[in-house]
Design a protein around this nucleic acid. Structure first.
Lengths: 72, 72
DNA sequence: TCGGAATGTAAGCTACACATGACATTGTGT
DNA sequence: ACACAATGTCATGTGTAGCTTACATTCCGA
């Protein structure tokens, strides 16, 4: 795993567990995306669009930079 | 103008002026993008990728949410 | 008055974010 | 032992972010 093809990492998986027993499907529904996308994001396959990043952060009640990190 | 096709707005143009006489070309060079992209972003044509959003924010020495706003 | 710097518009192209659907695996409860 | 929920893989398709090239406009200094 950890086949990162993007210089952006995220704390989605950790936040998901910290937010009760939130499943990938539950997060996907809350953000209006598919479970496939959640899997890809958690697996670091690619970085989300800025819009989706906002929706994910808001779902966790967090700021953008609490969820996504930019490793220059 | 203001033909927004995205629910995300930005303060790029304002920040550019607030950062000395920073031209679109200077910002583009600093972010590693083209002037066309700066024009499109300022014109609200589309939202940048998360990675580009980070580079722009960092160029201005600001946080992501200081530059980009998410209007649900 | 002419040249260059800054801004804007438009067409066509490529890369990738995200979707859909089908299937494999693992863990848990009954 | 079997159903089911949760996670993951693979394949394929579409929309759009961002690029390139080219041209038009406005403004300012020599």
């Amino acid at each position: 795993m950890s086949a990162t093809g993007t210089p952006i990492t995220n704390a989605i998986r950790r936040l998901r567990f910290e937010h009760g027993e939130m499943t990938q499907q539950a997060l996907a529904d809350a953000c209006g995306i598919t479970r496939q996308t959640v899997i890809a994001l958690e697996g670091g396959k690619y970085a989300p669009s800025l819009e989706l990043a906002f929706r994910i952060a808001r779902t966790f009640g967090a700021g953008l930079e609490d969820v996504f990190q930019w490793k220059e």
